[in-house]
Design a protein around this nucleic acid. Structure first.
Lengths: 210, 210
DNA sequence: CGTTGGTGATCTACGTTGTATAGATCTACA
DNA sequence: TGTAGATCTATACAACGTAGATCACCAACG
């Protein structure tokens, strides 16, 4: 991890945040670093390598030296992940686009493993619950950043009016609720609480203590 | 929705399934349809329009005229979604990549709304629970199709060995569990059961009846 | 019958992308 | 001073999305 590589990845992240992921081209990154496009290749190998590196650098920013009981640690981690996604909406799309192999990602997974073990989740269930929780949290973050929530579901009355009402009994019955604005932070909090409840329901005694 | 448009979208889906999403180029699709690249534009407007159309066509394949109680309907829907994702792994990546505005997507959401209402979930909670459930199910499908599960988390011993053991206490404690193969169908079933339990915990009486 | 208008396909061309290849430049140590 | 290695540059090419102009068809009307 030379300085130059970090510099390149940070430049790519900055471009993604400012002008979207599709504006991250080898030429644009190179210009930002102050170098010719071909000079990037020894450091990132590929365009795909660049994208993977960006994702790795993103996850590397997550601070894992957190303390408190498992509930606190999980909460802090989840909030940090969402904050990261809102800070870097462009790069967030990569979370579900590319398999995550970086050591940083593994460390995050490990932090969740230990939290679940401490909560008393049986070892046989821990990997699945970790995948469930991270899929949900990452999915929420990506959906929020990409606009999958919000505009896509005809929540607003104007959009809903375009379809025949008889075809959408559910939307019809929920009309008032759907017209209200959504507090995404509150929704994230509620989802997190649901995950915590789910974990508790799997907890057995005695819990694992490291 | 002319015949030609469907033909184009199906050709694009076929290419994505066979050779990956990055092989879906205007030229490749055109060749498959037996036409020049520019002939596609009146039908799909854009490359982005083509991708959106592919996603719409994918969701349009979901059969929604299902019966039984809410549990059955939700289960059938979830299984259909996963089957679709496994049938079209290339196009599945689009689920989290682009906001879903197609009428077909709205119909799917509506089917979940009515199931949740029938289950007795209060109207105020229905939209959030729908987002939670669909995020989890879609996230699972996308993760499975893209390889985010499986190769990325150093589940296999060979990968784990590359990192110092002291840094990964969770992985260390779960060594035996992580070395076993994962039955993804069983995991999907278990996740679905967890979602169902969550829904039941929100249910109040009397339930909504259409 | 000839003309006309509109729809869709085509042909050509331009700018941008990722990257292979070969050469230039700098640094550090003998 | 010279030489090896690492780093950056210059040039080039194939493939991409798509703008613009043109052309082939075919139904409808006088």
């Amino acid at each position: 991890m030379s300085d130059r590589r970090q510099e390149i990845l940070d430049a790519a992240l900055a471009i993604a945040d400012e002008k979207g992921l599709s504006s991250v081209t080898m030429r644009a990154v190179a210009e930002r670093v102050g170098v010719t496009p071909m000079a990037l290749y020894p450091h990132v190998r590929d365009k795909d390598g660049l994208l993977d590196g960006m994702l790795g650098r993103l996850l590397g920013r997550l601070r894992l030296d957190i303390h408190g009981d498992w509930r606190e640690r999980l909460g802090v981690l989840a909030h940090a992940m969402r904050a990261l996604a809102r800070e870097h909406p462009g790069a967030t799309a990569l979370l579900f686009a590319r398999p995550t192999v970086s050591p940083d990602a593994v460390r995050v997974v490990d932090a969740i493993y230990t939290a679940l073990l401490e909560a008393g989740v049986p070892a046989a269930d821990v990997p699945r619950i970790e995948r469930l929780a991270s899929t949900l949290i990452l999915g929420f973050a990506v959906s929020e950043a990409s606009g999958r929530f919000g505009t896509g579901t005809l929540n607003q009355r104007a959009g809903r009016g375009r379809l025949p009402e008889g075809d959408l009994p559910g939307h019809h019955a929920l009309a008032e609720t759907l017209d209200a604005d959504v507090d995404w932070s509150a929704e994230f909090e509620a989802d997190l609480a649901d995950i915590t409840t789910l974990i508790e329901s799997y907890a057995r005694h005695p819990p694992y203590v490291p």
